[in-house]
Design a protein around this nucleic acid. Structure first.
Lengths: 67, 67
DNA sequence: GCATAATGACAAGGTCACTTTACATTCGAG
DNA sequence: CTCGAATGTAAAGTGACCTTGTCATTATGC
């Protein structure tokens, strides 16, 4: 599952720590999600979407299934 | 996190087992999610949204934060 | 009564999400 | 070169997600 977290974070001029603080998670979690090491939980995905004022689908993208 | 899974499933006339088969998860997982015992992972939430042709936000609803 | 389908729930086990702590790297400022 | 801020990664722990298996309940049909 790809995501646009790094881009959105950069647009706001936030460090990973800044974003982590706003989300109430650790900096390592933000880093891991950005780097695609794992996907966030659904509640955390909602929190992220709310923070950026976007729908979840605009931030987290399905893997393109190679048809 | 509330969800409209039970309603959507009923609209399609599917049993929990039917839905579980279509999602590729166990019947117990469908039951647990419907009953709110836990939230699905983000990938599973996407699979559910795709199956019903709805955005995630139309199926899974934030807890109403008691203002 | 008996059988079957549907649902709700629990236990044990594996994997994943997230934590804290810690260390290494990179980069711009002085 | 040194310092601090930002980032990447790893280890170890906890709890959430998801599995299989099992049992109980309810409803329907024979």
């Amino acid at each position: 599952m790809n995501n646009r977290l790094r881009v959105l974070r950069a647009e706001h001029g936030w460090s990973q720590q800044d974003l982590a603080d706003r989300l109430g998670v650790s900096r390592q979690s933000v880093n891991a999600i950005e780097k695609g090491r794992y996907d966030p939980s659904l509640p955390l995905a909602f929190t992220i979407a709310d923070l950026f004022g976007l729908p979840i689908e605009a931030i987290f993208l399905r893997e393109e299934t190679p048809e």
